[in-house]
């Protein structure tokens, strides 16, 4: 009985995190982006600096009519948002925010593989949406999504493998436990490659070619409206949370920090993840969208060689110090 309660509690906590953190990131994006562009951003909803803007947006989405285009493949069209969103919920289960069993939803033995595999499944949602919408812009968006995923999955995997080599384990808590401060310079290239590839996998600007709104309206999500559209948006922001949490855990040492080793480690994890989320927003504001060929070129000619070099470096250092 106690076990069941424990599991239920963990699931509940993860679910709450899943529902709130993306909104926090979204609101931060509203505000940070506005100020980086010399604006104020939302100021009305909720009274104080528009803190409830995304709640208001959610209410608005819920009120909208749920439309399925006449020519669409109905069931796949309706299923796609769930396929896009659920993997991130699963991934959140496996990300540890503090030392010990208590600070992770579920300890997964092959944590890295679990996380990357499930994140890859999320892209299926976009593909389904792109194909089932019966819309040429959606189809183009789906094609671009697939091409982008194929290009950026590999560097992500390779850099994750580099960290796993360094730590000698593929479990996420194990990696953080083995972390030393000098891993940061050692795995720096890998961290950057992982982060960039993750951004591309989330289709965040400057890698948002699949949803390039000035060319193909909104890519695979063109035909969506109401709650299903909101689910896709939530998936994107949940993806940011997951990516930042993963990068923190893999490359920035998770709960390790100068102070707070006793019980306050989770603050460090959250702080680092928040900083990374800020960087995600910062990059979005700063850089223009990459063209499709530039996007492919960046991955195949820069990120993959860099990640291979990182693996080689990791191997050499590992052999030298052991």
């Amino acid at each position: 009985m106690n076990d069941a309660l424990d599991v239920a509690l963990r699931l509940l906590v993860v679910f709450v995190v899943f529902l709130t953190f993306p909104l926090i990131v979204g609101q931060t994006e509203h505000k940070v982006m506005a100020h980086m562009q010399g604006r104020l951003g939302p100021m009305y909803a909720g009274g104080f600096h528009g803190w409830a803007q995304l709640v208001a947006d959610g209410v608005k989405f819920a009120q909208k009519e749920d439309i399925v285009p006449a020519g669409a493949d109905r069931r796949i069209f309706q299923l796609a948002p769930a396929v896009a969103l659920l993997p991130y919920l699963l991934v959140l289960l496996a990300i540890p925010i503090g030392p010990g069993e208590g600070a992770v939803g579920q300890v997964v033995d092959a944590g890295i593989f679990f996380v990357l595999a499930v994140m890859g499944v999320g892209v299926l949602g976009s593909l389904m949406a792109g194909w089932a919408s019966a819309n040429k812009f959606s189809l183009l968006g789906g094609l671009r999504t697939a091409a982008q995923l194929l290009a950026y999955e590999l560097p992500m995997l390779l850099t994750a493998a580099s960290v796993a080599m360094a730590a000698g384990t593929v479990s996420l808590p194990g990696i953080v436990a083995a972390f030393e401060w000098w891993w940061v310079p050692w795995q720096l290239v890998g961290a950057v490659v992982f982060f960039v590839a993750g951004l591309a996998e989330l289709q965040r600007p400057p890698f948002d070619m699949p949803v390039a709104d000035s060319e193909i309206i909104f890519g695979a999500y063109t035909e969506y409206t109401g709650l299903r559209f909101a689910l896709f948006l939530l998936a994107e922001y949940a993806g940011i949370v997951v990516l930042c949490g993963l990068t923190t855990v893999l490359f920035l040492g998770g709960w390790h920090g100068p102070w707070g080793a006793d019980g306050l480690g989770w603050v460090w994890t959250l702080l680092k993840a928040a900083l990374l989320a800020f960087v995600v927003i910062w990059l979005r504001v700063t850089y223009p969208r990459l063209r499709e060929d530039q996007l492919q070129k960046l991955s195949w000619t820069l990120l993959i060689p860099l990640s291979l070099a990182q693996i080689a470096l990791t191997g050499i250092v590992k052999v030298v110090i052991s």
Binding site: L116, A117, G120, V121, V123, L124, L127, G130, W131, L139, G142, L143, A146, A147, L149, L150, E153
Partner: peptide, 12 residues
């Protein structure tokens, strides 16, 4: 994550 995505890519 990869093979089916490739398959769908081809189908599209």
């Amino acid at each position: 994550g990869s093979v089916v995505v490739l398959l769908l890519f081809g189908l599209m």
